[in-house]
Design a protein around this nucleic acid. Sequence first.
DNA 1: ACATCAGTTTACCGATCGGTACAGAAGAGG
DNA 2: CCTCTTCTGTACCGATCGGTAAACTGATGT
Lengths: 225, 225
Amino acid sequence: MGSLGAPPGRPSRPDGAGALRAPQTREAILPLLAETFREHGYEGASLSAISRRTGLGKGSLYHFFPGGKEEMAACVLTEIEAWFEARMFRPLREDPDPAAALRAMLAETDGYFRSGRRICLVGAFALSTTRDAFARRIDAYFAAWRDAVAAALARGGVAEARALDLAEETVTAIQGALVTASALQDPGLFGRTIARLALRLAAALGEGAGRPIPTVVENDLWFRS
Amino acid sequence: MGSLGAPPGRPSRPDGAGALRAPQTREAILPLLAETFREHGYEGASLSAISRRTGLGKGSLYHFFPGGKEEMAACVLTEIEAWFEARMFRPLREDPDPAAALRAMLAETDGYFRSGRRICLVGAFALSTTRDAFARRIDAYFAAWRDAVAAALARGGVAEARALDLAEETVTAIQGALVTASALQDPGLFGRTIARLALRLAAALGEGAGRPIPTVVENDLWFRS
DNA sequence: ACATCAGTTTACCGATCGGTACAGAAGAGG
DNA sequence: CCTCTTCTGTACCGATCGGTAAACTGATGT
């Protein structure tokens, strides 16, 4: 039973449902941190709020994240970047079927942001003073997203310039939908935006490949299939 | 002059050129407040930051805004609402030339947000916990914007449902552009988004009225004319 | 049994938060 | 001149901020 190679921290107790709250590992804490930052923003997420959410005292928090709040936020960003890279950006760049990758991207987006009930942490950071602290990573996140979409479109036969333009519009629309969905508390808005994008992406791909442009009706849920 | 110890009251009485910073009225302070909230968010805009920006001590601030920070933010929101109502929403609803009103709206938007270098305070509030405190006003702001655009489109001959959909897309795209422009620090992004919207709105109006849909090139700056 | 060390608890730090109290200065009117 | 109102500087409040220090707990390998 190694404290050597094994995962750092506590493998904890494998026995019955014993560990309801006690043993936490850095990785297990991250989602709770992310949710706290999402709800309160970086500056608004006080250590006491984080402590409450994670069930960990300050001492424990600083044990896992010696760098304090900034390291917590940085780790959360790293996790988010990894998630998007693995689940969306890489498929967009590499999936042999670009159209399918774009559909999957929209579906993943809808799921990740809980149809607009959840917020984009990176986007929220971009609008606040927190931006300065994480400028490069915020920039990279959006650029990677846009470029991945553009790459998929290009591989799908869309002209380079048109692909980049449409990719920019796609990422922009998603972010806008997150803002307006939160503002209006409209549960349908995000889905409508995704549907619009699905239609538009399909149309671009259709044009590029000489296929007919599908109608609105039959493509309303194009991105889900 | 000055008394013993420390100059109580107002040390800054340079001379006749008058009070360069002294005479403030509520109305004159509002833009400075707005800018402070824009930069730091509601929670991040500390009284000391506000004091620095406005040149007013706490005493003065609480003299003008007995309700404290919340009243300051509320007044800023009122001013913003009034600005948008007068400059954008009303023309959209009433201008005899809906197409011109839509063009003007896009141009005003580009100007107000400084081509994306400025942030939408209401949108930023919507993404933060501040939302709860101003939920109704945030909701009303976006709903009014969307409905005004829809009204203009409808008066321009666009079918009701299509008008509402396009209006929603328009407001969403603008908000998204503000997020991504801030994130990417891309000075061209906001303008491209506005241009895309101009093209799309013109196309919708053109279809509705049976006019030909203008091409991209000749409409790139359609909204400015 | 013992030392070790990951993890936790608790108390505490200086700084700053939003907000209050109030005395004093400036300006207007008599 | 005096007074009244309007505005402003300052000291201060309790609460909370992010962060630190160190004693403690408890399972582990030897």
